[in-house]
Structure formats: structure tokens, C-alpha cells
Simulated scan of single mutants.
Amino acid sequence: MHPTIPGGRYFVVKGQLWRCTNPSFSECERQRLVHDLMDARREVKRAKCSGDSSMLKSARSRVNVAKVGLGERGAVWWDDGSTDYNRCRVELTPYADWYNALGATKEQ
């Protein structure tokens, strides 16, 4: 399990922040969007195996659409005007002290 910042906007993988899914979704809606994402990721795998660059481009586009739908990319899902730190190194964000305080409990 990857650590999630206080407030639940991001989780940390290898020192990098990744935006969490929008928590306002119903479980049913979230599951539908996750299912779409997993289908798209399987399509990326098939496209890579086939060597079909057009299919790969289409599949990657579907992954992006699903991630935007989940709130993990695109416009932020919060409305307090806070900066988006998606894909930033946690040490270069206001969450650096929190992350450093995790110490030995950080994922490797």
C-alpha cells in the first residue's frame, strides 16, 4: 500500500505524487470507470504485443480518457484553488515535511 497524503488528494509511489480518484463518485460509478481503465490497459498490452502503432495510440488515448474520468488527470476535482502537484516529486511540494516524517514507514 502506498502512503496517501493527509486530505487524500495524492498517494506517493517512489517519491512521486499521483492524484487519487475523485472521492465524490458513488461506488458504482467508480467501479465502472475503473473497469473502463482496466479494459484500456489490456488494450495497450495487446497493441504492444501486436506491434500495431495505430492500435497503441488509440489504446493509450482510452487510458487517458478513463484517468481523466476518474479525476486522476485533467482538471482537479477539488475546488479550493490549491495547486495541483500531480506527478511532482514529493520533496519539491508542500508535502515534503509530511513525507520525510514518514521515515522508515515509507514505501521503497
Results as ranks from 00 to 15, higher is better:
71 G>T: 04
106 K>R: 09
48 K>Y: 03
62 R>F: 00
98 W>Y: 01
44 V>E: 00
86 N>H: 12
82 S>W: 14
81 G>Y: 08
91 E>P: 10
10 Y>C: 13
88 C>A: 09
78 W>S: 10
54 S>D: 05
56 L>M: 01
38 M>T: 09
21 T>M: 15
88 C>I: 12
104 A>Y: 12
103 G>I: 02
38 M>S: 08
52 D>M: 01
34 V>N: 04
106 K>T: 08
14 K>V: 15
24 S>T: 07
94 P>W: 04
73 R>L: 11
47 A>S: 01
80 D>F: 08
8 G>Q: 12
49 C>V: 11
47 A>Q: 03
48 K>S: 02
19 R>H: 14
45 K>S: 04
9 R>V: 13
51 G>W: 01
62 R>E: 02
106 K>Y: 06
45 K>R: 08
48 K>G: 02
9 R>W: 14
103 G>V: 03
92 L>C: 15
18 W>K: 12
103 G>L: 07
64 N>F: 10
37 L>K: 05
107 E>H: 07
55 M>W: 01
4 T>M: 10
62 R>K: 05
30 R>S: 04
44 V>Q: 00
29 E>Q: 07
106 K>P: 04
11 F>R: 14
98 W>G: 03
5 I>E: 08
30 R>I: 08
31 Q>N: 14
7 G>S: 07
25 F>E: 03
28 C>Y: 11
1 M>P: 15
76 V>R: 13
106 K>H: 07
81 G>V: 00
101 A>G: 08
94 P>Y: 01
88 C>K: 14
19 R>V: 07
26 S>G: 05
25 F>P: 00
71 G>Q: 14
67 K>L: 12
27 E>R: 03
7 G>Y: 14
31 Q>F: 15
51 G>N: 01
39 D>A: 10
48 K>F: 03
40 A>V: 01
67 K>M: 13
43 E>R: 04
101 A>E: 05
76 V>E: 14
17 L>P: 09
101 A>D: 03
23 P>R: 10
28 C>Q: 11
95 Y>L: 09
32 R>Q: 15
6 P>Q: 00
104 A>C: 10
21 T>L: 12
23 P>F: 08
14 K>E: 08
69 G>L: 07
10 Y>D: 09
88 C>Q: 11
85 Y>A: 14
99 Y>T: 01
107 E>F: 02
10 Y>F: 13
10 Y>N: 10
28 C>I: 09
73 R>E: 13
75 A>C: 13
58 S>N: 05
94 P>H: 04
37 L>A: 07
88 C>V: 15
95 Y>R: 09
73 R>N: 13
53 S>I: 01
103 G>T: 04
31 Q>Y: 12
49 C>R: 05
60 R>N: 02
24 S>I: 03
68 V>E: 15
72 E>R: 14
77 W>T: 10
70 L>C: 06
1 M>D: 10
106 K>N: 06
46 R>F: 03
8 G>R: 10
79 D>W: 11
30 R>F: 13
46 R>T: 11
55 M>Q: 06
27 E>C: 06
46 R>E: 02
88 C>H: 15
